[in-house]
Design a protein around this nucleic acid. Structure first.
Lengths: 238, 238
DNA sequence: TTTTACTACACGAACGATCGTGCTGTCAAC
DNA sequence: GTTGACAGCACGATCGTTCGTGTAGTAAAA
């Protein structure tokens, strides 16, 4: 029922409200990533969109509702920019690496002005109880679980050593991307991405079943080579 | 001239202003760690201290000045809680590990309500140019450099493999603590500290010169054992 | 010793701006 | 003619900041 009417509305230029709502969220999500979800202000947002405060406010009903919608919008963007591309890759270690690569790339191309949206808002809200915090925590947990799940799947496929602790691996991989986001946004340090990727590949190599080493090596070379200068690890080009 | 009168003043309970200032900063630093440096409000702070806004304001002259002072105070606390204890240990890998351990412990005992002060404020200000951002970046950089410097020193002492990239190691160690802070404050996940420490020890073991393995093992056992259950790595107790 | 002068510190009141949030009205689309 | 999207206006609260005043305590002058 809903689907049919939706199509009609869409055709007739209806869902005007929904269209405006999306435009609001699009702007809001970028302000929030730079100024924080609490720093995001209804007046400021209305100005930027040449709307009245009250007109904008009517779409949400409260600031908290707006914040929740913004987090949801950020999730959509994250899925489109990071998860979807990675999910096109075959399952296992290839997809696991793709998830991290896409994630790093998304940080690097500054999809959000203030770096990865979820890291910023997670730290902003971690000691501020409420629905917003709960939503952020749930989404963050979900993404972390996705990483861990893919690592586990790689174990099932025999690509990663089954003696490996998948949760520990996910923890470390997640940490490396987070650090890259931090370093890049605080120091404008572009090398952070290479450093993160070096660490990621190292973690995967350590846990890889013997036959997988070649596969990972290829992926590494295909992407970006860390100039070959700072590679003091053993057995480089035997 | 100034020094003499200062002594007299100090003896007579002078530096009253300085004492008040410190009390203000003590309260401010905790509010700021939970609500953010921008969420820290002069009115709220004055209420908490049963002072007038104007009386409090007079100590700083502007909000930015207050924020700078708060960051400085946070630095003092960080030095006292983390750096100083670690610096009592002998130089090299022992001190390096102590720095990370003290850092994790300080996160775990919630010295600041909102987790590690500098991670929170770094992400809050990373896309907000100004003196505050510059100060935070400088202090963060300095701590990261200290870690890297100690790793390098461990190389000089022959404790760490000289082929190791110290900057890369510092990046990864820093990432692990940062991740623990994130996970603990967002998920109340206490296991995060074990996970971080597991990763840290693994990084150090990998880079350690042969004779050092025993030393690290001792330190690990002395602190806290991860219940021995999730240790799927090779050569545990040969 | 008393008076005078000055400084440090804190207060209350008020400024203009902006915050989030309502209420009412208008105009267009169904 | 009902409904949904918006604007206009206003509210109480709070923001950072300024101003004038009061109270101690100290230093120099009497």
């Amino acid at each position: 029922m809903k689907a049919i009417t939706d199509i009609g509305k869409q055709r007739r230029g209806e869902a005007k409200g929904e269209k405006t709502r999306q435009e609001i969220l699009q702007a809001a999500v970028h302000i929030a990533s730079a100024e924080g979800l609490e720093g995001l202000t209804i007046g400021r947002l209305a100005d930027e969109l040449h709307m009245s405060k009250s007109g904008l406010f009517g779409h949400f009903g409260s600031k908290e509702e707006l914040q929740l919608a913004v987090v949801g919008k950020a999730r959509d963007i994250f899925v489109r920019e990071v998860a979807d591309p990675a999910f096109k890759r075959e399952r296992g270690i290839v997809r696991l690496l793709a998830m991290l690569d896409e994630w790093l790339a998304y940080v690097g191309r500054s999809v959000f002005r203030g770096g990865c949206f979820f890291m910023a808002s997670a730290i902003e809200f971690d000691s501020r109880p409420g629905q917003v915090r709960d939503l952020i925590a749930e989404l963050s947990r979900s993404w972390l679980d996705t990483i861990e799940g893919e690592a586990r799947h790689a174990q099932v496929l025999g690509q990663l050593d089954t003696r490996l602790d998948a949760a520990q691996l996910a923890f470390e991989l997640h940490a490396l991307v987070q650090e890259a986001n931090w370093s890049y946004n605080l120091f404008e340090n572009k090398r952070a991405f290479e450093q993160a990727r070096t660490g990621i590949l190292e973690r995967l190599r350590q846990g890889a079943a013997p036959g997988l080493l070649r596969l990972l090596g290829e992926k590494s070379a295909a992407k970006k080579r860390p100039a070959g200068k700072n590679n003091p690890k053993r057995k480089e080009r035997t």
